[in-house]
Amino acid sequence: MQWTSILAIYGLLWVLSAFLVLPFGLRTADEEGQEVERGHADSAPVNFRPGKVAMRAAILAAVFLGLFYLNYVYGWIAVEDLNFFGTPPMKEMGY
């Protein structure tokens, strides 16, 4: 696998990981005992820390990339393993 492919896959996994870790650790104004300002949503977080989210996403993406690479090397799950519906009818006819 080329290093550019690894970098691209890491980027995709980082974005996925960022969405996965985004809601963890956030607190609303109501949970913090603060008053919600006029024009703000009640569910808006008061302690959003993008650096912490990015660090958590980087660590989780590295774990996912490690698992992806190990699967690539050892072939634990192949494309054929993901075929849940059987052979397509057109392929049975030789098309």
Results as ranks from 00 to 15, higher is better:
2 Q>R: 12
44 A>G: 07
34 Q>A: 05
32 E>D: 02
49 R>A: 09
49 R>Q: 09
35 E>Q: 10
10 Y>T: 04
27 R>M: 09
21 V>Y: 03
36 V>C: 02
88 P>M: 13
17 S>I: 00
28 T>D: 04
18 A>E: 02
19 F>V: 05
70 L>K: 04
95 Y>D: 13
52 K>F: 09
1 M>S: 14
51 G>A: 10
11 G>L: 10
7 L>C: 10
83 N>A: 15
59 I>Y: 10
87 T>H: 06
20 L>K: 00
87 T>F: 07
58 A>G: 11
32 E>S: 08
87 T>G: 07
63 V>Q: 02
42 D>Y: 12
92 E>L: 14
37 E>S: 07
83 N>C: 06
89 P>M: 14
56 R>T: 00
14 W>N: 05
72 Y>H: 14
85 F>E: 04
14 W>D: 00
31 E>C: 05
75 G>C: 12
90 M>N: 06
95 Y>A: 12
40 H>A: 10
22 L>E: 03
55 M>K: 08
70 L>Y: 10
17 S>R: 00
64 F>L: 15
54 A>H: 02
22 L>W: 08
48 F>N: 11
58 A>D: 04
29 A>G: 04
40 H>F: 09
82 L>E: 12
65 L>N: 03
59 I>V: 14
81 D>T: 04
50 P>K: 02
94 G>L: 11
3 W>D: 14
51 G>L: 13
24 F>Q: 07
83 N>Y: 08
30 D>E: 13
79 V>D: 12
50 P>G: 03
44 A>V: 04
51 G>T: 06
38 R>D: 11
73 V>F: 14
42 D>I: 01
10 Y>I: 02
78 A>P: 01
76 W>F: 15
81 D>R: 06
43 S>D: 15
78 A>E: 13
41 A>H: 09
71 N>W: 03
89 P>F: 12
25 G>N: 07
12 L>R: 01
4 T>A: 09
14 W>L: 08
84 F>Q: 01
1 M>K: 08
42 D>N: 10
28 T>C: 07
66 G>T: 10
61 A>Q: 00
76 W>E: 13
25 G>H: 06
28 T>E: 03
56 R>H: 14
31 E>D: 05
59 I>S: 08
43 S>P: 02
35 E>L: 05
93 M>W: 11
13 L>D: 00
71 N>A: 10
58 A>E: 00
76 W>D: 12
14 W>H: 06
89 P>W: 15
56 R>W: 13
